[in-house]
Amino acid sequence: MTAYIIRRLLYTLPIVFGVLLITFVLFNIVSGDVSDQIAGKAASAETIEEIRAEYGWDKPLFLSRDSQFINHLKNSLTFNFGRSWSDRELIIDKIKRGAGPSLCLTVPMFIGTLAISISLAIIVAFLRGTIIDVLSVFICVAMMSIPFLSFILFGQYFLAFKWGMFPVFFWPDLPVYKYVALPALIGIVAGLGGNLRFYRTVMLDELRNDYVRTAFAKGLGTGSVLFRHVLKNAMIPIITQVVLAIPFLFLGSLLLERFFGIPGLGYLMIDAIGARDFQIINAMTFIGAILFVVFNLITDICYSIVDPRVSFE
């Protein structure tokens, strides 16, 4: 068991290295030199030299003990991303500050989507083959086909502005739950189609199993078969899904945060794109990847504990 965990841990090392390599190539090589951008419009050549020295861009790329790549590895692994060049603030502070608001939005959104889509999925799976099933699958597909931006724009205009059911925007004196309500609702509605369709498939797969037939044969009622047997067994794919979604919760939602003024990481990302602040994007990409790797690891280890069939070889 311990050996398995250690092996699994070692296996993540090349992945982390790969992520660092990709971010380095993207943001330090392909993106080009941004020192004159930092210096501003009227900067002299000396100022630009000064900036290049400060950010270490005058060093060799690879192949040296003090190369940019080695520094990139060192800095990323110690989460020392330096200061954002657009406002000189520590990037890690920005990220720490943004995680909270992002989670305030994404966690309720995620739980809401999950709860609604799983409950509906059970009902729909039970009614499989009927007109309601066909119709609901069609509605799901239809909902998946509407652009997310349209959901946001129509939602904000009608629900918040026209009908005044929600605050239109973040507001300092309002409690969090009030201004998060509408974006979360929009997120849930927009995500429902895809999720419901997925969980319906999961449920149907379970229903095809022999144990379901046995349970019915024993004379159990549909309710108890669905909830005591099917849902329990369907939990494994569901939980996998849930655990792997957690890293994305931290990253927030680009568009929702922007339109509703939630100062989270999605918003930070949009700003960084507009300002070409590659260091912020680099930091976000790296942290996102690390979270994903870590949660993947956790899932695998949990599996190995729960399911004795997982081989430790």
Binding site: V19, M269, A289
Partner: peptide, 23 residues
């Protein structure tokens, strides 16, 4: 496998934005 595991561990939306931005 290493290449695609690496790529898939970067959140998709970030990856796509990063590519679009630098390209």
């Amino acid at each position: 496998v290493w290449l695609y595991t690496t790529l898939s561990s970067i959140p998709y939306i970030l990856l796509i934005l990063a590519f679009a931005l630098v390209l």
